[in-house]
Design a protein around this nucleic acid. Structure first.
Lengths: 181, 181
DNA sequence: AGTAACTGACACAGTAACGTGGCAGTAAGA
DNA sequence: TCTTACTGCCACGTTACTGTGTCAGTTACT
């Protein structure tokens, strides 16, 4: 692929992710314009609107998977893996702000992969409960949802924080809450 | 207004809220069908699609405002007000699951009212920091966002929990986190 | 039981987005 | 410098949704 083509492809993907995140019904024309590219160029890379969505989701899933691998969710000590995962996933959320739930509805084909990642995270959370960091009584689904939302909040609401700082904040809030100790 | 008309109106509003929450581009035809009502009937109550959106938002804002009043956010002891607010707002979130952020974009006219409620909640969170429950160092925006998201999670992910239980969970997680103590 | 309000069904024009075809111009890379 | 991959632009048919008109039929309330 030629260099300019690759540049355009990347611009479309990223712009698409951004616009679709804040308005899922953003038109192909709008995305193309915002990416500084002709509408026809978008259609050349992605035959249908759905294909573009799929590509965006794939990109997000790829990144998330890589982060999980590098955090060594399955083997590393939980405390270490947790911090590393959050630190890695925050930039991914910022770069691909598309909503995961909507993603699954819009592209059923991505579901199995999505659920694989989700299950992996669930196993990690269970490990956090069993091996110490998390209280024993806490329901797995609640812990999981809380972790997801804290990450989301840190990624979106506090763009000023760099990933390590954001990870500190998330982990501390998850473990200790915001109350006086 | 006749009784059947009121029933239909309510059905349309609630169905609209539900469908629009999971797909902001849900068509009037879909909403009408799901509410068991003719498309024309919806248009009789709400001249435009936007009018329906506005009505849904108004309904949510009305409920939220009432909850804040009843929780006496400004006067009651913070611990009491917090629990009462969460307990009251969880059913509101469940009944009107529309996303607040998207709401503001879709209906700029609702913005001032929305921001008034938001500011009220911000003042309450500040009071929580000053008067004890929350740690002193915690940034207001982070505390606020965390509270909002915990409420959201409890309302959506754990439909089995009744409002008091959900409030217990939210408050405990907010103050103490999920870590071992 | 009678009246007025309300509803459902079909039909219609207007608009916006999707996806496609063709072609001249431009810029990357040998 | 030359080839060719790539782009921008205009035009077109198709589909889906919005919003409106009409009217006969039904249902709530007096």
């Amino acid at each position: 692929m030629r260099a300019d083509a690759a540049r355009n492809l990347d611009a479309v993907l990223r712009t698409g992710a951004r616009l679709l995140a804040e308005d899922p019904s953003a038109s192909m024309a709008t995305i193309a314009a915002e990416a500084g590219v002709d509408r026809r160029t978008v259609y050349r890379r992605f035959p249908t609107r759905e294909a573009l969505l799929t590509a965006v989701f794939q990109a997000k899933l790829d990144s998330a998977e890589r982060v999980m691998d590098e955090a060594r969710l399955e083997e590393a000590p939980v405390a270490v893996a947790l911090h590393r995962y959050v630190e890695g996933i925050v930039p991914v959320t910022r770069r691909w702000p598309v909503d995961t739930r909507r993603m699954m509805r819009a592209d059923p084909a991505a579901r199995p992969r999505m659920e694989e990642l989700s299950a992996r995270l669930d196993r990690f959370v269970r490990r956090m409960i069993e091996e110490g960091p998390l209280r024993t009584g806490v329901p797995l689904t609640w812990a999981r949802a809380t972790l997801d939302h804290l990450i989301d909040t840190a990624a979106r609401q506090t763009p000023a924080l760099d990933p390590p700082q954001a990870a500190d904040l998330v982990v501390d809030t998850l473990l200790n809450g915001l109350g006086r100790r």
